[in-house]
Design a protein around this nucleic acid. Sequence first.
DNA 1: CACAATTCAATTGTGCACAACTTATTCACG
DNA 2: CGTGAATAAGTTGTGCACAATTGAATTGTG
Lengths: 144, 144
Amino acid sequence: MSDAPRLRHQVCFALYSASKAATAVYRPVLDDLGLTYPQYLVMLVLWEQEPRSVRELGAELGLDSGTLSPLLKRLEGLGLVERKRSAEDERRVDVVLTDAGTALSAKTQAVPQRLADAAGLSAAEIEQLHATLGKLTAALNSSL
Amino acid sequence: MSDAPRLRHQVCFALYSASKAATAVYRPVLDDLGLTYPQYLVMLVLWEQEPRSVRELGAELGLDSGTLSPLLKRLEGLGLVERKRSAEDERRVDVVLTDAGTALSAKTQAVPQRLADAAGLSAAEIEQLHATLGKLTAALNSSL
DNA sequence: CACAATTCAATTGTGCACAACTTATTCACG
DNA sequence: CGTGAATAAGTTGTGCACAATTGAATTGTG
């Protein structure tokens, strides 16, 4: 019996639980903005730079068109983004922010602080966690 | 523009990406076993101790009956578990392993090693990551 | 230039996550 | 003891994640 892998010993489960807990902390704040967590991630990418094709968004976030297409349709329904076929390459769909989408950025300043407040970790621990997760994700993705 | 939170700086996104990458590493192995990752988590709990009520499984995994009820129905369909109303408390449903469910444990020995191999982190780094994630999850969950 | 291979986005289908609600059972307290 | 509160599991509905497929546009190569 003790030769079976145990739940509490699995780093994988620790990641899964931490990720769920983090999005749960964000949820009430994002609810006020009318966004889900993945929608917020897409908006973050667009606030940094736009227009972005569906493919570029997917590369940044690690999501495919099967996830992004309906998500972007919902963001468009909310009036936050617009989608239009690229003129140069008609395969591409460029996603741009509307005025409302751009304006929403100002209301999200407090969002990351929420996690930091609830984390119960020192700035140094956060920093190290962030660095280790980055190394881990890169190594895991390159092993596929 | 630079006052907007940026994707790469968000620990939340690092957790989200790492968790997805970890389950992606597990996926081909679990596919061979005919399990999804959440189904594997449920089996891990049952291999440690059974029977378990739906509520107990949910408490271990942080999942509610809305997620577990259909998942357990699928595990039952695979012939790995059985569900029966508890005799003492007819509100409860006890989940027990079938012989096939118990036997499956032997085939999962190599699963966690897969992640360790692909992680590219030292044992010490893994250990520290695990500890930090545990602290973080506990703090986040208690802040809700 | 023709046309096969590739790329991009969308769609379909399965399964997970979670909120809200329903129903059945048990518990608590008056 | 009886009834209202609490608890357990299930269902419904929405949205995300991902595999597989489709169809349109582009690219590369002969």
